[in-house]
Nucleic acid binder design. Structure first.
Lengths: 150, 150
DNA sequence: CTATAATCGGACACAAATGTCTTAAGGAGT
DNA sequence: ACTCCTTAAGACATTTGTGTCCGATTATAG
């Protein structure tokens, strides 16, 4: 429900990168192992986030990916706009092309407040926030506990 | 966001059928035309809803689909469980297989209240409710106004 | 009984999402 | 210069969602 696998991988990876020391590139291979996600596919996703300006990438030795300067405060909403498309919260829940306060589907006015809550939630959480939550050890980013890898 | 095309078509069709006189089968062809949806695909969806017990179908002359006795009060939640699978609200927003109050992803406790609102909304709306809303003429089921077809 | 009209069921077709592989290009260390 | 390690890029494969088609089946009307 709600998010594509691509977006889920992207968010997980972004949070993980945000937990690592700023400025030290993180290896795609390490992220993939940590999150238990296919690494070649993850690489594609990270490359896309680079093109969109959220990440920086470095080739060669000491290379890898890291958050671009200042991007720790990126909201989940902004990040998802990059993976799901900028209008991913705009669409009608029943799929109607035209659905607004003036031309509403029968669910429109019931769905609207819930949608607003979702948007507020996504706009209110930053990568930094989520990274800090993970660093407390109370939450996990993958199906294994935070420190379970060797 | 949120619903597959299949589910969107299913809900639209169910609401439309619920607006029609009970007991009089509705033609798949008419539903498809009214909703501007591919009729062969819609037929598959309706057949599935029959197998799952939500609709009745009748072949031959005077045939078609209609809501099974008593199913006007079916909630959106119940209908979506048939098209999206019974656990479609259960899953973790980040895609973790294990994510509960005890083993939580960093979004878990923020997402939980929103998820509950969504579930309450879906459980609170019945096909009958939505059909009545459409019948007031204030809402539309397709991209054309309720009465726009010839 | 026959013709007609509708769903049923399966096979097929196409597109998008997801995942894999290989080669090229670029940076760091020796 | 050379080698190694990394991302970049594109081709390819697989899976799933979406959509089409056709013959079989069933019910009604004449």
């Amino acid at each position: 429900m709600v998010l594509s696998r691509t977006s889920q991988y992207a968010i997980q990876a972004l949070i993980y990168i945000a937990t690592q020391p700023a400025g030290e590139p993180v290896l795609n291979r390490d992220i993939a192992a940590r999150l238990n996600v296919p690494s070649a596919y993850l690489a594609k996703i990270l490359q896309n986030l680079c093109k969109q300006g959220l990440l920086d990438s470095f080739r060669g030795r000491l290379g890898g990916f890291c958050l671009r300067e200042g991007m720790h405060k990126t909201s989940l909403m902004q990040a998802l706009a990059l993976t799901e498309g900028p209008d991913f919260t705009k669409s009608c829940i029943l799929g109607l092309k035209e659905c607004s306060d003036e031309t509403a589907c029968p669910m429109h006015f019931k769905w609207l407040p819930v949608k607003k809550k979702i948007i507020a939630l996504l706009e209110g959480m930053t990568l930094e926030d989520l990274a800090k939550a993970v660093q407390t050890g109370k939450y996990r980013l993958a199906d294994l506990p935070t420190g379970a890898l060797a």
